[in-house]
């Protein structure tokens, strides 16, 4: 016997309220799936993800890798005949996944680097040397090496609770 999944309208509403106001415009034509460069390489099917989001099937969305296969290339958004903000909706769903503790360790590393240094990647001695050789400042004139700027940077994330968010539940 086929299993029928119960829709969860509360979750659908939450997606819509979080910026996904075009979610229910989707009429499941599949142009997104056909346009998706990631879908060529993976089992990720954009149309299915959007359908699940319309039905609010939270448990079918948040724990799964598929949600993270989108490269945010916007090709589907450009071609969508209903002008659904597909990429934005995917990012909203990812925010919920992270809040529920579904976050890859490699992503946690990127997030911590961004939080602690101001950049997603570290500045190593090799690249410091290369910068110097080019006549650039050893450290770029960014948050790096600017104590006050870094303090402000971290303060913002203290207010938004980013450290707790990336720490999982």
């Amino acid at each position: 016997m086929a299993t029928v999944k119960e829709p969860n309208p509360q979750f659908t509403d939450l997606i819509i309220k979080s910026g996904g106001k075009t979610l229910n415009l989707c009429y499941q034509c599949g142009t997104c799936t056909a346009s998706c460069p990631s879908g060529r390489q993976t089992a990720f099917r954009t149309r299915k993800l959007i359908r699940k989001a319309q039905l609010g099937l939270k448990e079918d969305i948040l724990p799964f890798d598929d949600l993270w296969m989108c490269t945010t290339c916007y090709t589907c958004v450009e071609r969508c005949p209903r002008q659904v903000d597909i990429t934005d909706i995917i990012m909203i769903l990812r925010n919920f996944a992270v809040k529920e503790g579904y976050m890859a360790d490699t992503h946690k590393k990127t997030a911590s680097s961004m939080m602690n240094t101001g950049h997603t990647i570290p500045l190593t001695d090799d690249y410091k040397g290369m910068r110097k050789k080019l006549g650039l400042s050893e450290q770029p004139p960014t948050v790096l090496g600017d104590a006050k700027a870094l303090e402000d940077w971290k303060k913002i994330m203290k207010i938004t609770g980013f450290d707790k968010i990336i720490g999982g539940k």
Binding site: G19, N95, A111, T120, F162, I165, I166
Partner: peptide, 9 residues
């Protein structure tokens, strides 16, 4: 990455 993790931040 960061926008996918937390839009407010």
């Amino acid at each position: 990455v960061i926008r996918s993790f937390d839009q407010t931040t």
